[in-house]
Design a protein around this nucleic acid. Structure first.
Lengths: 221, 221
DNA sequence: CCGCGTCATTCAGGTTAATGTCAGGTCGAT
DNA sequence: ATCGACCTGACATTAACCTGAATGACGCGG
């Protein structure tokens, strides 16, 4: 399942993201509404987790305009305990459920799992990039129709590219995908994994941008 | 599709029954848990609609014991809006979805239809994967024509794979199939059951993806 | 209430493959 | 030509995984 997490608090965001990943779902995490709007237009999600207090605007308005534009993706609101009126307003605005902060991660899992069960059987969106077919939900990749197996780290890295195709990703951004907490890394691990990905997926899939980082090539040439 | 409706309120029960009948499904309507238990043992349903407030007991306990006995029929809980904790507990106990009373009959139809679609997906209830023939309704498996007996736990696990063939299932997803949500597991139970399934069904049926989980192999080697 | 069998769970020891590191090479910019 | 950045084959380490066997829980018939 594809989940969009909209949450500006870094600590909470990381925890939620990791938990949902452990449950086997693909997570995009954005920290502001402006990014959320771009993501929603670019991708189709199965679930949106929406914090209401955000730096650049009100979550309600985002939710309302989402619904107004015909998007019926399930939305679970993340809100603080005392804001009762928020919860009511949220449900009225078209949310499917809400979670009261601070919430238990297993409770989060339960709700997300319930949505996932509801969507079971629906076809997953396949991302096609050149000769690759990527199913982010099922963690499957085909290269020229042949299934390709990636290891955990390889997948973690590659998923980052697929979620932002064509975007330049810096080394530190990639490190954050491999290791939980900005763990310092002194060796050339990134390079090694890029190398392994290229070996499995094809030489031209990932382009290196000298002194800057890497990006996913989005078209066949 | 066969639906079991467990609801003691007469008016609501009639309305729901009629609606689902109109949608073309066969409905059994019982008004207490004691009757429900008999029905569940006598018949195999595709869906159970479960009210939580019943005269002769708690809906949760019914649901839990149902799951424990290896029955994985989809369950939709009918509950009142203000009983938030009920909903959480219901999902944790193994419900697939919930409907908040008072609910719109068309919403009921939609949810029931979603479950129906899942089961109609394969007009033939027999799923064939490699040398295996799996009857999801009857809980029966044949390997090379030979019947194979699975225990309740083994089936619970294997069913998860069959419902999403080829999909990578994480450990926590598999644990959720074996136990109620949140039940922390410290030992290698999953591995043991995978091992047993492989022994009974064939070595190559389930492949392990290290550090990530397992997946059902969908083609014959 | 007691034995019996079945199933669930844990443990221990062996096996395997993912992972991070390094070394030596290639490539590109200046 | 030089230097730094990047690539990649090889390898030791070790967590992850597998599985036979021991232990515990549960239900059933007598």
């Amino acid at each position: 399942m594809r989940v969009l997490l909209i949450e500006d608090t870094t600590g909470l965001g990381e925890a939620v993201r990791d938990q949902i990943r452990d449950d086997g779902h693909a997570v995009d995490w954005v920290q502001s509404l402006s990014f959320a709007e771009v993501s929603v237009k670019a991708t189709s999600y199965n679930l949106i987790l929406l914090d209401l207090m955000l730096p650049d605007g009100n979550g309600f308005d985002f939710l309302k305009s989402l619904r107004k534009s015909g998007n019926s993706t399930p939305v679970i609101i993340l809100t603080a305990r005392d804001q009762v009126s928020d919860r009511i307003e949220g449900l009225n605005a078209g949310a499917d459920d809400y979670l009261i902060k601070p919430f238990d991660l297993s409770e989060l899992s339960a709700r997300v799992g319930a949505v996932a069960r509801r969507y079971r059987g629906d076809p997953n969106p396949l991302v096609k990039i050149g000769h690759l077919e990527i199913d982010l939900c099922e963690h499957r990749i085909r290269a020229n129709g042949q299934a390709v197996e990636l290891t955990a780290r390889e997948w973690a890295l590659f998923e980052g590219f697929v979620q932002r195709p064509g975007t330049l990703l810096s080394r530190s951004q990639l490190e954050d995908r491999l290791y939980q907490f900005g763990a310092e890394i002194e060796s050339n691990t990134i390079e090694v994994y890029i190398s392994r990905l290229r070996k499995k997926l094809g030489r031209d899939v990932i382009i290196t941008v000298r002194n800057m980082g890497y990006r996913l090539e989005t078209y066949e040439h």
